[in-house]
Amino acid sequence: MMITNIEIVPGKQITKHLGLVQGSSVRAKHVGRDIMASLKNIFGGELKGYTELLQESREEAVSRMVSQAEAIGANAVLNVRFSTSSIAAGAAELFAYGTAVVLD
């Protein structure tokens, strides 16, 4: 499975467009991390817990998008975009979407 955010893959021909595929994941960290993060907000710096959280979510979102693409017989997802939104306090949604295609 090829995942890119370009439109045209050099040297390859798109034979079929299979429409939009998407993957999303909403995750939260336990309250201890939230408390540490609010302490960290005083001093600034990287919130390792949240970096990790978003990273995990992003991976899951991509893997869900890939399973949608696989389910409809695509072998690549082009023009992938990510969007992050905070859905509830302490929970963030990672959303990935792209065009499923069959490459030659």
């Binding site: 034979t15 079929k16 467009h17 299979l18 429409g19 595929v21 998407q22 993957g23 999303s24 869900r64 399973s67 949608q68 389910a71 409809i72 017989g73």
Partner: peptide, 14 residues
């Protein structure tokens, strides 16, 4: 022909 919209199975994003 080139652009089709196959049905995606349920339950991947939930």
């Amino acid at each position: 022909l080139e652009y089709s919209n196959p049905e995606i199975p349920e339950g991947i994003n939930t």
